[in-house]
């Protein structure tokens, strides 16, 4: 089937549509909240968005590799439960640092568990990671049956208040992940990931280690979920074994709005980052626009559906006009 010009452009620049949405969302948000770009407001927004941004990046990597990870939210919860119980509000900085390092390995371990089943046992990603999400969510509840625990205020203050050169900490973290991604894309591994997601059979025929690449994408997703878990723990300063639940589906939405298709082999992480910011900004806009409380969920969801459907609507309209 021939693609239209718009489709061609968006195919080559998958983040284009997200960028457009981001600009619109930012403009509306600034209209309602003029001090949005002041560094304090920027910081208070970005530190809230960061956990979803990190998780969405991991989700996007799995999706590029042709899979999906329904267990990311549960991994976030496990990490949060672990940190809140093992460090404690009066924990010493040494233990805290070690535990955060350990949390990264827990995340990668959980990802490796998913990868093992999906890549090497050849199970279907959706149902596998759904099943493992039960396992992880149960584990989080086992570690922390009731909300409680916490991390020292030293750490939460670092996460919440750090502003370097007028820019919040979250922006530096994002810049760092973008730089890392730019490096990874240059490597053979980066090309393998897209090949495996696009046409696994062809990739296999040309000697790409398909299983290993699929496996690794879940490890990356687990790692990013662990980072997201650390971020959300530092943000809230407390433990709740269900804190990650909403992140699973939001991370998929953010990745798709960011131009990473569920069919794999395309997209990137710049788009999903924008997608996550857009989701956050929409929430902001709704609360600043004085939408009646009972309508907020509906308006939020309707805007998201519209954003998801917009590329399709544009294509339909353009085909009519040709």
């Amino acid at each position: 089937m021939r693609r239209s010009r718009w489709q061609d452009v968006t195919y080559r620049n998958p983040y284009l549509f997200a960028l457009l949405l981001l600009i619109i969302a930012l403009a509306v948000n600034i209209l309602l909240q003029p001090n949005l770009v002041a560094s304090a407001t920027l910081n208070s927004n970005m530190r809230v968005f960061l956990p979803l941004i990190l998780v969405a990046i991991g989700q996007a990597v799995v999706m590029i590799g042709g899979g999906i990870d329904i267990s990311v939210g549960a991994i976030v919860s496990v990490v949060n439960a672990l940190l809140a119980t093992q460090i404690g509000i009066n924990g010493d900085p040494g233990t805290a640092t070690i535990m955060m390092g350990a949390a990264l390995f827990v995340g990668m371990g959980a990802g490796a568990f998913n990868g093992l089943f999906v890549a090497y046992l050849r199970l279907q990603p959706i149902i596998t990671t759904f099943a493992s999400s039960f396992l992880f969510a149960g584990l989080a509840l086992f570690i922390l049956p009731n909300p409680g625990g916490g991390v020292p205020s030293l750490f939460t203050a670092f996460y919440r208040e750090t502003i370097l050169l007028g820019l919040p900490l979250a922006l530096y973290v994002i810049a760092l992940t973008l730089a890392a991604w730019a490096l990874v894309r240059q490597t053979r591994y980066g090309r393998y990931l897209y090949a495996v997601g696009g046409k696994p059979d062809a990739a296999y025929e040309t000697g790409v280690p398909v299983r290993a690449v699929q496996f690794s994408s879940y490890v990356v997703s687990g790692l990013m979920a662990a980072l997201g878990g650390i971020a959300i723990t530092l943000l809230t300063g407390s433990g709740n074994a269900q804190v990650g639940d909403p992140l699973t589906l939001s991370s998929i939405t953010a990745a798709v709005i960011g131009g990473t298709p569920l069919s794999g082999g395309a997209g990137g992480i710049a788009g999903p980052i924008m997608g996550a910011v857009i989701l956050g900004l929409v929430r902001n806009i709704i609360s600043f626009a004085n939408v009646e409380t009972w309508w907020q969920t509906f308006v939020n969801a309707a805007i998201i559906v519209l954003a998801l459907a917009m590329p399709g609507i544009i294509n339909l309209v353009r085909r009519r006009n040709v």
Partner: peptide
């Protein structure tokens, strides 16, 4: 018609 992936379309509708 709009070629939205079923997973996200129905997820969005769940929210609506």
């Amino acid at each position: 018609f709009l070629k939205v992936a079923p997973l996200v379309m129905t997820l969005g509708m769940a929210g609506v």
